[in-house]
Nucleic acid binder design. Structure first.
Lengths: 155, 155
DNA sequence: ACCAAGTGGTTGACACGTCATCCACACTAG
DNA sequence: CTAGTGTGGATGACGTGTCAACCACTTGGT
């Protein structure tokens, strides 16, 4: 017979439930804010931020996907949509006939530059300000632990 | 002239970045697990878990939506899809001509009962086990703080 | 030179979430 | 009773994410 599952209870359940509720509400609010004060989706924001801040505004599609930890097909779809909206453009890659460079258009630059300021303010207001410096530090370490723990496991 | 945005840096940036990365990876893995070992989506799981554990298997649509903190239209769509898959059924409400009761079918009960055990194991393996009891406690309190802080603000 | 395998990227089908709109019924004031 | 307002819920359009299949090009072995 199977061992019965050990349900979460007490402090474990409290930690899990609170974490899940918090994370959902926080992410939800932030993405609605990005949407309403810049007209971009949260995905648009992530892509443009990665491409311009860390990729110099021009990157190969798979590199960009790895940078923001997305699947390649998700990135490809997203780039297609953003291209239609004029935020990005595709360029051919001379070195590799299969490849494509993704570049931020002037409109794309303008969009994140305008959006980034608002976004950081919301992050401050909803998240940073809720916590003391030592709580922030604790959360940083806790998140790191969970990340490292997950990376040890294959699935 | 506008005040320049105060970018995140140091411990603030570390906390935010780590938190975001952790939360995305964790949620992503968990939902893929639910999908692959029960055939249900993460949304199916949430709905069935709420309905059966806290609603006795039979609830009004809006009550169910409030219970899991979803918008009514999201819930309505989800119920439609789950009804097609045989996990839920709609029943008319005698007291209120507009209303609808949502009930879990036998197949629905079977599905969460089977899925719940796996799910709690994954939560343990990926999350609980990564942290010490005192870290869990800290995270519970931190999440609570953020939640309370957000509830004070209107948007 | 050639073929197999790998890599970079696209595509289509489908499930999901959001927003705005709409509809039927309920409740209240007059 | 009836007009207006509120509430429970459904719906359609649209943007987004995932999976599996696919295609074109490159690379490495023989």
């Amino acid at each position: 017979m199977d061992a019965p599952p050990r349900w979460l209870a007490g402090e474990e359940k409290a930690a899990w439930d609170n974490f899940i509720r918090m994370q959902e509400k926080l992410i939800g609010r932030l993405s609605r804010h990005v949407q309403s004060d810049s007209g971009m989706s949260a995905s648009d924001y992530v892509v443009l931020a990665g491409l311009t801040e860390r990729g110099g505004g021009r990157m190969r599609l798979l590199d960009l996907a790895k940078l923001v930890e997305w699947e390649k097909s998700r990135m490809s779809h997203q780039v297609t949509r953003m291209t239609k909206r004029g935020l990005l453009a595709r360029e051919e890659c001379p070195d590799d006939g299969r490849g494509a460079f993704i570049v931020a258009t002037p409109a794309g630059y303008k969009a994140i530059e305008e959006a980034a300021g608002h976004h950081v303010e919301h992050v401050r207001r909803l998240f940073i300000e809720a916590l003391t410096p030592s709580q922030l530090k604790a959360l940083a370490r806790i998140s790191e632990h969970v990340l490292e723990h997950m990376e040890k496991q294959s699935d």
